[in-house]
């Protein structure tokens, strides 16, 4: 005899096998539970992207919730010209931009700002980049470097590197031509390279040419 939980989980598995576009169609035909599956699939990714864009866990939670609420309200009118995910990222990006603008671009308190001219600098010397890497702080160095990028470069790097979107998908989400996406990416990565080298991150120096 199948138990209730077995029935529920098999139902979920069936849903998980459906493409985003099928779930969207189901939603548009009145199956509102299809949205739960879409959210289950995308919530953590969207939260991660917002976290990287704003540098705040709180924003990641709030804005992701807000993004899904907006998506829920607008999904009836979604025509499917773009992929659902690109559309969802577009909503999240716009929310992030609004939030950042309200904060007047002051998003991250970078380690640099904390240590330069702050109380920390007075109490003890700033740790060298090497120390920080050895303290497994490369994550923080990279986060600071990305945060220091201009908004448009930061957006494409995050969407490409962490969200794994194609150039075309990023172009849709940002509403810019594909070549613009690539140019921004090139410039952003170049900035990152200079900053990481300045911070003494090993391995950013040239290595033998990779095979292509």
């Amino acid at each position: 005899m199948p138990t209730v939980s077995a029935r529920v989980s098999s139902y979920k598995i069936v849903r998980m096998g459906m493409q985003d576009e099928e779930l969207v169609a189901a939603f548009q035909q009145g199956d509102y539970a299809a949205f739960d599956s879409l959210m289950f699939r995308w919530e953590r990714k969207i939260q991660g992207a917002i976290y990287r864009l704003t540098g705040s866990e709180e924003d990641a939670r709030d804005l992701a919730q807000e993004a899904f609420l907006r998506a829920y309200r607008a999904l009836k009118g979604f025509k499917g010209e773009a992929r659902f995910s690109s559309w969802l990222y577009q909503i999240a990006l716009n929310l992030c931009r609004d939030r950042m603008r309200r904060r007047k671009g002051k998003t991250w308190v970078s380690l640099e700002e904390l240590t330069e001219g702050g109380e920390i600098a007075a109490s003890h010397a700033r740790p060298s980049a090497l120390d920080m890497i050895e303290a497994r702080d490369l994550s923080r160095i990279v986060a600071d470097a990305v945060a220091a990028l201009p908004e448009e470069q930061r957006e494409v790097i995050i969407l490409k590197e962490y969200e794994g979107m194609t150039f075309a998908e990023i172009a849709t989400a940002l509403e810019v031509p594909i070549s613009t996406v690539k140019t921004r990416l090139y410039r952003g990565l170049g900035q990152m390279r200079r900053r990481l080298e300045r911070d003494g991150v090993r391995g950013a120096a040239p290595v033998p040419a990779p095979t292509i």
């Binding site: 939260q47 991660g48 976290y51 990287r52 990641a60 490369l138 994550s139 990279v142 986060a143 990305v146 790097i157 590197e161 962490y162 990565l189 170049g190 990152m192 390279r193 990481l196 991150v201 391995g203 950013a204 120096a205 040239p206 290595v207 033998p208 040419a209 990779p210």
Partner: peptide
């Protein structure tokens, strides 16, 4: 090559 290295470092950023 340097851009490849940057890409590798970017992977270190965890949420």
């Amino acid at each position: 090559a340097a851009l490849h290295a940057v890409k590798r470092h970017l992977a270190a950023w965890k949420t």
